[in-house]
Design a protein around this nucleic acid. Structure first.
Lengths: 352, 352
DNA sequence: ATGAAAGCGCTAACAA
DNA sequence: TTGTTAGCGCTTTCAT
């Protein structure tokens, strides 16, 4: 059997500093009502003994748990990890969210729950009961699930909805997918393209629609028709290839394609290669997400960059601020995506 | 101020089932000495109320914390996340480790600590005091850091050392880098290559040496000289390009290169392209790690696949088993890497 | 400004 | 086999 070395507790510090352990608690939590000299003495003991409060005990005492859950879709996340296709959504969440958590003494715990499960509430309720997090960060497609947001609201747990524009409880954060799609479309319009195809993502994700809307809006503003220019896929490479082939095969093929994610852009790349269509000479291509793979393809792809790390960091800040009474949910917070150009776009080929 | 909805506790279950809360505790922990009918009654109440124990309270009660820390190098991990070059080490750790944790009701928390920091012990001690984890998974270059392993041993915390062959406390797990390098070298030898270059990684990582050793061993066994065939880099693309250029530029250039990681392999790819050397026709290339990017390069690269997910899963199993008295550290556990072939290797070009 | 007492939800050692 | 008691380390009242 394993017995752990007894670690330094608040009592050790109190004894060392010659004060009651209440005072130590006050110092830890930076509460007012402690004489500076007292505070200094206590802090000296804390440093000397290397004391760090146990978050389990802090939670038990009725305070915060210093835990924030990042809730992701199980099926999709695991599939991405297994496929090893370069999706780094989780990594970017950690980069932004975890590091921000540590600034405030919090930890981030990743939880996976099934979107399609009928016991989604049970799963989430279990995670809440088990960890008693101070906050939850919701990612698509959970962000707009009323079962989830309702449960969190009921439990009075702060939460952020990444990629959701719905009104309702929790902080809404968006990377403005509509604007991002317009950005991409505008760039192609400026290059002289008139037949700009768009490969949409699955409807399950609200952002799929927003992206389509942005493309439509930009096309309309440029006075361009969109008949027959909208394809659709399920975010997989194969589906992108199918959609791209259709867009490239008609009597009046597109000269540019915007794909709703990188995998479908890779599919487009393959389809073009199979058809003997050169990128960017014959076809301009812009992708969504800017995951690592699009930098090493031939050519490297222009892409919409999603500021996932920043959104995650903001989410953490908002959650912590709300618990401190320094913030409250309101209008959606926009952290705009940007367009990075690489060698996959060029002026539209001359018409025959 | 936020007040959380009072959740279901062990007492509610006890009241509902009409037993003492001890009995409930016994059922939760699957202890012996509870009549089946009693157990069933309690379980029914648990299910009915949707009770899930609080891990904070469980920890406070003197039991496990159900937390396992995955300790990674801060500098390198953050750099990888920022660079977005496709390194998916953390993802694979989560895939293997986190999912295995959940099978046992544990959670995995990622912690980053600085290797080069002089207060590495303080950082780790703080994490331990704060979270009181039941186990820690060490990754290179922490795995062999005596400051870390010593501290963990002192605290009697179970831990796994991934990529370490040292004797000493904790479970040692290895992907047998030496054998992996031999595997790659043997494949090239079989293809008729005689001048097989090797680009080593930085010495800070023990595995760098092991890989070199494997290459040397395989070369020796094939009766091949290695003079001038060993290059070195720092795992960056640029360093790989420099090393590859050197190996490819002499009077007697190599016909095959093994790079100690994917980025250096990409560098080799660039160097070869710059020199007008075709892969695999003029040069065969094998990489280490098999991160996502090597599937979309031209050509896709043959690579040594590191079973990181599996090693992480085994680590979790061992840690949990040790706490249950069902396992104890012993000889290093080998989870062998494998070689996946793609279109980057070919028979050695005919000699002039 | 500081200290004392009670309790958070659970497990462990003991008693019945 | 079950229930009782005493903590775990901390934060909250409430006194002083």
């Amino acid at each position: 059997m394993i017995r752990r070395k007894r670690s330094v507790t608040i009592k050790h510090v109190a004894a060392d500093a010659g004060v009651s352990f209440q005072t130590v608690s006050r110092v830890i939590n930076n509460e007012s009502g402690v004489r500076p000299e007292m505070k200094q003495r206590v802090q000296a003991s804390i440093d000397k003994l290397g004391y760090v409060p146990s978050i389990a005990a802090q939670r038990m005492g009725g305070s915060r748990s210093y835990l924030i859950i990042a809730l992701n879709d199980r099926e999709r996340t695991i599939a991405d990890w297994r496929a090893r296709q370069g999706a780094d959504w989780v990594d970017q969440m950690l980069l932004g969210g975890m590091l921000k958590c540590h600034e405030y003494g919090y930890r981030m715990i990743i939880e996976l729950v099934d979107t399609h499960s009928d016991h989604i509430e049970r799963e989430l309720a279990a995670a809440i009961a088990s960890l008693q997090p101070d906050g939850v960060i919701l990612t698509p497609p959970h962000s707009s699930n009323p079962l989830i947001t309702g449960l969190l609201a009921e439990h009075h747990i702060s939460f952020a909805r990444i990629g959701s524009l719905d009104p309702g409880p929790g902080f809404a954060l968006t990377m403005d997918d509509e604007r991002a799609a317009r950005l991409a479309t505008d760039h192609l319009v400026e290059l002289g393209h008139r037949r700009i195809g768009f490969i949409a993502g699955p409807e399950e994700y609200e952002l799929s629609m927003w992206r389509v809307d942005g493309w439509k809006a930009a096309m309309a503003r440029a006075g361009l028709a969109i008949d027959g220019l909208l394809g659709g896929g399920d975010f997989s490479l194969a589906s992108g290839a199918v959609a791209a082939t259709a867009l490239l095969s008609g009597t009046d093929p597109v000269t540019a394609i915007i794909a709703s994610n990188d995998q479908m852009a890779l599919g487009t790349l393959e389809a073009a290669r199979a058809l003997g269509i050169a990128i960017p000479h014959d076809l301009s291509l812009i992708s969504f997400d800017d995951t690592p793979i699009v930098r090493v393809t031939h050519p490297p792809l222009a892409a919409i960059v999603q500021p996932i790390a920043e959104v995650a960091a903001r989410s953490v800040e908002l959650i912590i601020a709300e618990r401190a009474g320094k913030a409250a949910p309101g209008e959606p917070i926009v952290v705009p995506a940007s367009l990075v150009l690489r060698n996959s776009t060029a002026p539209a080929p001359a018409r025959d």
